[in-house]
């Protein structure tokens, strides 16, 4: 399980990175990476907010999102955009299916059992992918016809050259985040989600079908993970069974850093993690090999300073 390849799919930065244009390039890159982390982190935080469960399998759901998109184009010969949308819905159903099979029966079990089950589901998804899709990495490169090569065209801003894809990524991330906020704060089902995260039994008494709302939450989170996965695969153009492990872990850390249970926190945490990762690698290149360890360092630091995360609510244990 190696980390993400150090070389990005685009935005190749060479030599002197301390000038302004270099910084701008890093910043755009960092925001797009942070946005992807944020999309995944939301899935963790919503599930944790409702079930108090770390959905270990979420990173692997992300991987399956990439695989679905890949096979949609390669095997089912769909146009790329149909394949991508199809993948988002299929992944959403995968998430809900996992909840139905593995987590729902354990809703009243000790939390350790649910956590171990989630770890089991994660390993199942990874190894099932090895068996079904094969262990070798598949190329997710526009040259192989997955998506139009024009996405890699460069835009010049001053003397900075940034590929269109980076802006597309940032644009999609923000559209998805705004859509999510609209669902959570402006729709009935969103209200039910917020209510359920406060108190499941009471919400049930109000006539809300808790199971359906929980299923919907998993669908929403998994759909966002699929979007994040496809964007990730465009950035680091390949997919293999363990693709989701490192970004999944980092996104979980982002959720904890931002304050687990808080959607805004997950966004903040995602951007903090993405930006600090890119910036540290850019300005202290000798630490590049440790890029996957930064997230843990940030996690430990935040947990020790403010255990509930940046936007988390302080809950003192009742004695």
């Amino acid at each position: 399980m190696t980390g993400a390849p150090a070389k990005g799919g685009f935005s190749k930065i060479g030599g002197d990175s301390l000038n302004l244009s270099g910084f701008l390039q890093h910043l755009v890159n960092a925001v797009s990476l942070g946005g992807i982390y944020a999309l995944i982190a939301i899935g963790y935080t919503m599930v944790y907010g409702i079930l108090r469960l770390i959905n270990f399998a979420h990173g692997d759901v992300f991987t399956y999102g990439i695989y679905f998109a890949f096979y949609g184009v390669v095997l089912f010969l769909m146009p790329w955009w149909i394949a991508f949308v199809f993948s988002i819905f299929l992944t959403a159903f995968l998430g809900a299916f996992i909840e139905r099979i593995a987590y729902r029966p354990l809703r009243n079990a000790p939390r350790i059992s649910a956590l171990i089950t989630a770890i089991g589901v994660s390993f199942f998804l990874q190894n099932f992918a090895v068996v079904v899709f094969g262990g070798r990495a598949k190329s997710f490169n526009p040259q192989t016809g997955i998506y139009p090569t024009s996405f890699l065209n460069m835009i010049n801003i001053g003397n900075v050259r940034i590929p269109i894809l980076t802006f597309i990524t940032i644009g999609i991330v923000f559209v998805a985040l705004i859509l999510l906020m609209w669902i959570v704060y402006r729709t009935k089902i969103g209200m039910a989600m917020r209510a359920i995260s406060k108190d499941i039994p009471t919400t049930r008494l109000m006539g809300v079908n808790a199971d359906r709302v929980i299923s919907f939450t998993f669908m929403l989170g998994s759909g966002l993970a699929a979007i994040g996965g496809i964007l990730w695969a465009m950035k680091y153009p390949q997919v293999y069974p363990y693709t989701g492990m490192i970004p999944g872990l980092k996104a979980f850390i982002a959720a904890v850093v931002g304050g687990i249970g808080s959607i805004q926190g997950a966004m903040v945490g995602g951007f903090i993690l993405g930006i600090s990762e890119i910036m540290i690698v850019a300005f202290v290149p000798s630490l590049a090999g440790y890029r996957d360890a930064f997230a843990y360092a940030i996690l430990l630091f935040v947990l020790l300073v403010k255990p509930t995360g940046i936007l988390g609510v302080e809950v003192s244990e009742k004695v």
Partner: peptide, 21 residues
């Protein structure tokens, strides 16, 4: 089939947790 052992093991763990905690 490479990887099949781990598939079986993870299913085993899930089944253990669901039915025989």
């Amino acid at each position: 089939i490479p990887g099949m052992r781990m598939v079986v093991l993870s299913v085993l763990l899930i089944v253990l947790m669901l039915f025989w905690q």
